[in-house]
Design a protein around this nucleic acid. Sequence first.
DNA 1: AAATTTATCGCAACTTGGTTGCGTTAGTTT
DNA 2: AAACTAACGCAACCAAGTTGCGATAAATTT
Lengths: 139, 139
Amino acid sequence: MVALKQKLEERGLRKTAFRIELLTLFTQTKSSLSIEDIKSSVGKTSDKVTIYRALDAFEKSGLIHRVPDKANLARYALCHNECKPEAHSHNHAHFICTVCDETFCIENVEVPKIHLKQGYKINSSTLTLEGSCPSCQSA
Amino acid sequence: MVALKQKLEERGLRKTAFRIELLTLFTQTKSSLSIEDIKSSVGKTSDKVTIYRALDAFEKSGLIHRVPDKANLARYALCHNECKPEAHSHNHAHFICTVCDETFCIENVEVPKIHLKQGYKINSSTLTLEGSCPSCQSA
DNA sequence: AAATTTATCGCAACTTGGTTGCGTTAGTTT
DNA sequence: AAACTAACGCAACCAAGTTGCGATAAATTT
């Protein structure tokens, strides 16, 4: 909890009740959170605009990053590595279960380095796998 | 043109003026088309609903497939390989230029096969690269 | 060729994810 | 405590995409 407030302070973000609650939610979540998820657990009291702006601020300051989502919706997860503002480094793949719509970070899989024809400058690369996860297999 | 109408007929789609025009546009386009692109070249006369439904029908019948887009918008391209309804096979990477927002298919790059932990079933995998393309480099 | 069938069209109205403007509230700094 | 300004919250808005439904026009049947 203390470390959590520190994270906000380090980045020049204010320690409001809502933002602390939101960041806590992220630390307690194994995989990623959709806006839906967030709304249903901390959004009862806060306006959607507040949520969007907080997510935006968190992302800009390197606290969280966007992960892909089946329906092309926004989805976020905590940054594990050292992410600085304007330079997120998330070189891992994502697995999206098309049954339960969960998004999993595949930590131990590196996104292969691709080199393109001369002239292309690559800033980021994402490898997204779609299918069904173990719990949805058995169903 | 003849082959084009045939494609529609083969899939049980009607050869309406609009759908022929739309399919022609796809064949004339090297990379991919956003809804914006489509609207501005064939959408003057047709309703957006018509466009969406035509794209939907084309995709379902394996004529075109969706490609990722920077802003998570829908974007489509012609199917090169043999795509059947319900079974698209597009094992190539996409490059999105974040300057001009163009999406390029990287034809000669295979999406590497990833094997996950037991229990995950992968239906499709997409490798998306973001950066700036040659023409936007020089600017 | 006319009649029937049915895919496609096009308008209106709606839904959803997300944004903008702006006045108010509340951390933070002095 | 006063001043400063990030963050909040409401309303209004926007854009992408969907749904319902009657009208139109291919394709098929007679």
